[in-house]
Design a protein around this nucleic acid. Sequence first.
DNA 1: AAGATTTTCTGGAATAGTTCCAGATTCAGA
DNA 2: TCTGAATCTGGAACTATTCCAGAAAATCTT
Lengths: 138, 138
Amino acid sequence: MALRSAGLNLTAQRIAILDTVTHRPHSTADDIYRAVTERLGSISHQAVYDTLSTLSERGLLRRIQPSHSPARFETRVGDNHHHLICRTCGDVRDVDCAVHHTPCLTASDDHGFSIDEAEVIYWGICPTCTAADATARG
Amino acid sequence: MALRSAGLNLTAQRIAILDTVTHRPHSTADDIYRAVTERLGSISHQAVYDTLSTLSERGLLRRIQPSHSPARFETRVGDNHHHLICRTCGDVRDVDCAVHHTPCLTASDDHGFSIDEAEVIYWGICPTCTAADATARG
DNA sequence: AAGATTTTCTGGAATAGTTCCAGATTCAGA
DNA sequence: TCTGAATCTGGAACTATTCCAGAAAATCTT
């Protein structure tokens, strides 16, 4: 199991958190807190935050931090995918790299930086919200 | 003047803020507050935040919100440039689009969204911090 | 099973950045 | 000069997150 190979002890909390994020990608810490509480009976906020940090550090989770949103987590790590977020409902979708093979890690001018990540977020309005808006306007 | 053509009254505060951001791109609200205070004698935090919001809404400023950083503002709007940020010192540089002509607005799969912005941030370590780190390690 | 270590717990305080309030005042433009 | 826009003061509120510190519990090792 992933936790084991990352050198982490197996605890009910870690398993539940990892599993929750696997089934509900792009969850916030609070989403996770609620899901795990339901599943285990209870968990502390600190345990959730601690675990999310640990799992992110060890590379089992990827943390994404969209503007005006709490951090979100996903288990799809190691590839170069990006995100598409609805400005209205906040829905997050995965998007594969537009130009393929980690192209986004290549800036046109790197200013001498050693770049380790390209964070790409597409912002727009999802079809559902577009439809709802059209309906509301009559 | 830009303020005028955006239909905004000319006030000393707005002029000073716009001017400050022009000369110091990627300023935070607090940077701006301090610079304008020095320039005008005083300004309120609220006026700074109000003005930054107004100018951003009217398209005179672009707001960027890097993770773990307060919002930053710049007057370079309307083009499709991105940002390169040093993880160590927080230095922000402009980067032209890697693939040219607003390519970044094109996701490989738009999921039916109407995309209006592609936010691209390259993360890395700047040459100065790399050098400093090498020196510190001896 | 015991011991050592890791993890989680409670619960409260603190933080940063920003927004909101509400009423008074000042200012720009017509 | 008038009107509405903009700004002011000053304090409270907010969200997401981190930090604290010691106690308790669970996990892994032997």
